[in-house]
């Protein structure tokens, strides 16, 4: 049993070890109600990580996800009154469109994705500040409950967010495993040169990957604003790091090609357990960033495929 054969199984082994470890130290942790609440709370982060998976799967990165979610919380709060349920459509389209723009800038204008998405993130931040007038906005509680209340309620003891998460995961899994798009993304991630040489329209598929990432970041923002019943230009700050961590500890390396959305689901659960255990050990939310930064380095170092990087820049 060498490390290479063990590697694909590391994420879920890590998860189980963590759960057992935390379960032993904190007897309340393993109660179903607690676990369900924990899972429900992490859903907006999970959706963002789900989108990020597509960008990372092709060997890129999307640093605009957080700004996108920020902007969407503002858009949702501002237009809920006038558009009603259609505001959801607007949000997803906006995310898809801006993601497409990131993809266009990356693939057609040859700007590396971490710069192009950073720039698009800047645009999102401007839009959010402009729309909100740099204030925290509130949704009309009655209207929110009538239109989007189903997102945050409970069915039995199960938070409804989990159904949304499961639905989106199934959709993404379908895209990844059962569609031409999914196969194409795998080819691009495994070897872009070879994919292009075998006649694949690499540009189009890469643009679509960024668009999916943008759209899911928008869904995450929408859900988050519904949860908080409002929005602000910096409200979702602090999402980006754990979202990237979730993708990477799940086993989708920065170099792309392997892993996928199911891995991200496991990765997000790992993040959730780490968070819960940190709270239990008295590490405050504001200090968790340091821990996640270190986890991130470890996760990249373990997962990255060095044979794909001739020179590490």
């Amino acid at each position: 049993m060498d490390l290479q054969r063990l590697k694909p199984h590391l994420p879920w082994i890590t998860l189980i070890v963590l759960v057992v470890f935390v379960g032993i130290t904190d007897s309340n942790f393993l109660k179903p109600a607690n676990l369900l609440e924990l899972a429900g709370d992490i859903v907006p982060l999970f959706i963002m990580a789900l989108g990020l998976t597509f960008a990372i799967y092709i060997g890129g990165i999307d640093l605009s996800a957080q700004s996108m979610a920020n902007m969407i919380t503002v858009v949702a709060s501002v237009y809920l009154a006038s558009l009603g349920l259609w505001v959801a459509v607007l949000c997803v389209l906006l995310g898809f469109g801006l993601g497409l723009l990131s993809g266009f800038v990356t693939t057609r204008l040859f700007v590396p994705s971490f710069i192009s998405t950073l720039a698009v993130g800047g645009v999102c931040f401007s839009v959010a500040q402009w729309l909100s007038g740099n204030r925290a906005l509130n949704m009309d509680a009655e209207q929110r409950n009538a239109l989007f209340g189903w997102m945050i309620g409970r069915t039995g003891i199960i938070p409804n967010e989990l159904f949304i998460a499961a639905g989106l995961l199934a959709l993404c899994l379908f895209i990844e495993r059962r569609t031409t798009l999914g196969r194409a993304l795998k080819a691009v991630g495994a070897g872009e040169m070879a994919a292009a040489a075998s006649g694949l329209n690499v540009t189009r598929y890469k643009m679509l990957a960024f668009a999916i990432s943008g759209a899911l970041a928008a869904v995450a923002g929408l859900l988050f604003s519904v949860k908080l019943s409002g929005g602000a230009p910096t409200i979702a700050n602090g999402f980006l790091l754990p979202a990237i961590v979730a993708v990477l500890v799940g086993g989708t390396p920065l170099t792309g090609g392997v892993g996928g959305v199911l891995n991200t689901a496991i990765g997000t659960l790992i993040v959730a357990v780490i968070r819960a255990s940190m709270l239990y050990f008295g590490v405050q939310a504001t200090q968790q960033q340091m821990v996640f930064g270190l986890v991130l380095i470890a996760a990249i170092a373990l997962t990255i495929d060095r044979s794909k990087l001739r020179t590490v820049k």
Partner: peptide, 26 residues
Amino acid sequence: VHVRLRIPSFMASLAIGFVGTGAAVL
């Protein structure tokens, strides 16, 4: 971290940056 662990610099430095901000909060 970038050179010895062979992690692309944008990710290594981004993570170190997060750690720095976290330490400042701490």
